[in-house]
Design a protein around this nucleic acid. Structure first.
Lengths: 325, 325
DNA sequence: CTTTTATCGCGAAACGATTCGCGATAAAAC
DNA sequence: GTTTTATCGCGAATCGTTTCGCGATAAAAG
């Protein structure tokens, strides 16, 4: 491997001139040619470590999220990656597998690698912990999908409450009065908002909320499956169920099929996040669909503006979900 | 931000002692205490750039793949990330969106960031190009899911041919004689192998292969959808279709449903990669399922051994897929 | 032809860790 | 009490860039 000095020697100029050339500075035409030749001859590439040591920048963005294998996150990350890359940043992804200890550890680790910015999908971290961990790093952060209560920073969210409100209202319009909800963890802000939309729809239509019809656990397949079993073993069963994420929806539908029930005749369902699968069904299952790409793009743009020096108030976007009937 | 010198001054020892302490060397008990206190007092963290400059290691592994939003890749990457992290490495993910120019560019970029190793799911790169790009980096590489013809290196693959053979044979057992195949790009090694298994099953059962029944395009939903339309618009339609990846399967099933046909009465189907969705269907769709987690773990372990200095012949694992009926 | 102005190259000093060999100290052996 | 042995700390050099101010050269202005 060759260094900038080797190139300088071969090109007959000083190392600083090479550096200037590499970073887009003004260099005399004849030198440009000599430098270009020397670089090609030696197959020189800048040493990223040395550069970062001097500049204290890594041109990389950390993405901390629960689980990259969830299609929703996968698509968001793809969009993030694409947009960031277009601006010369690359992404460093860290999954904490919805494990709360790992969430802290990976955050610490990500920050310790010297990322220039952070995109964060939090699950179980308090504002104090967040500030403690990010103290003396001053890494601009954008929260996505959910937020930590009390953290002031840019955020890109969706209008969860309205989306679930619309879904629930649609089920009510179809004549349902006993509607179940299967939801993610209560301490996750997006899950909470989805619950709020559900409750508001019920009360707006003068339906009394029955605590029994609310099933909450983690964001997994099993939650959908077991939630379905639990709700249908009630004395006073629901006639429809609203799901609030991808895996829960798949689990829910699987349970229904395993019980030999038909959708929507025996039990009506509203899906979430799995548009392709829901529209594949016959008859198709109505579904709430988040603008995954736009979420990623918006977050990336927020971050890029901060990295360019924008220093205004925290901004928050709430994007609308679409409902596919 | 504080440096190692600040800590040294405060603890009353030399910077080299601090370095020793940080890296697990032997340090006298009384100094350990002083150093620990000093680090805590200053909230000192090592500067990753300076460390990497000196050691020429980044403790990070690049993952280059077509698309992180595909559930198969998502799960593989999750397993990779987990295993690598347990060994002190973190992952740097780069998607090239099945775009061939981007594949080269991102490979170049990933290498330029100084990753210590590479996990690569290639699509359209020749061995010459690969060697040219990786020359003078000497980055250990593990290929996953597919390989570039002519690249000698560790690889973790599945037994694609046998899996599709078994699936096709099962359809033949069910009485089908005209069976279609919808496949990814012909130049991708895994797609090729799947095709080989398909053809072998046909010939082993004395069924003449009809070129018309073979539809190949990219690995997308639309390929499954359009492939289905194309095959079913043939004069001599197939009575069953084998799919060869997740999105193609979803597209295929969607097309079938949109045409108002029933599975398996009107058209039998064999799915790929989407176990949850296929088993959710009623009646369930048989499906080929790859050991995603094990793929990730195996690849990570290969890489870790190389990074520890193992320098033997390239190794290749072929894992068996399971068939869920 | 001289003066002003702009352009660029140069050298040296960072950036913040790790490494290496030497020397000092303390414990163990005799 | 002296020698041997092991343990650890120290200082200086090094990794390969970028940056900054000064000086040199060339072009433009008078």
């Amino acid at each position: 491997m060759h260094t900038i000095k080797d190139v300088a020697r071969l090109a007959g100029v000083s190392p600083s001139t090479i550096s200037k050339y590499m970073n887009g500075g003004n260099v005399r035409e004849e030198n440009v040619k000599a430098i270009r030749d020397a670089i090609a001859a030696l197959d020189y590439r800048v040493n990223p470590f040395a550069r970062s040591l001097k500049t204290q920048r890594s041109q990389s963005i950390g993405i901390l999220l629960p689980d990259i294998s969830a299609p929703f996150f996968g698509t968001v990350v793809t969009a993030l990656d694409k947009t960031l890359r277009e601006h010369g940043y690359h992404t460093l992804i860290s999954c904490y597998s919805a494990n709360h200890a790992l969430e802290r550890e990976n955050l610490r680790y990500l920050l310790s690698t010297g990322v220039d910015g952070l995109v964060y999908i939090p699950e179980d971290l308090s504002a104090e912990e967040f500030y403690e961990l990010t103290a003396n790093c001053s890494v601009p952060t954008v929260q996505i999908d959910r937020v930590i209560q009390g953290v002031a920073g840019d955020a890109v969210l969706v209008n969860n409450a309205d989306a679930v409100y619309t879904a629930t209202a649609e089920l009510i319009r179809r004549g349902h009065r006993r509607i179940g909800l299967i939801s993610g963890p209560k301490f996750v802000s997006s899950a909470k908002e989805r619950q709020v939309g559900f409750l508001r729809a019920l009360s707006d239509h003068d339906i009394l909320f029955d605590e029994e019809l609310f099933f909450s656990n983690d964001h997994a397949f099993a939650t959908g499956y077991q939630g379905c079993e639990a709700l249908l073993s009630l004395e006073n069963k629901p006639t429809a169920i609203v799901s609030t994420n991808h895996d829960i929806t798949i689990g829910l539908v699987t349970a229904i099929r395993d019980m030999g029930l038909r959708i929507p005749e025996d039990l009506d369902v509203f899906g979430f996040d799995c548009k392709d699968v829901c529209t594949m069904m016959k008859p198709s299952i109505p579904v709430i669909y988040q603008p995954e790409q736009i979420i990623g793009q918006t977050a990336a743009n927020y971050l890029i503006e901060r990295l360019r020096g924008y220093n205004g108030q925290p901004r928050m976007t709430r994007l609308e979900c679409s409902i596919v009937l």
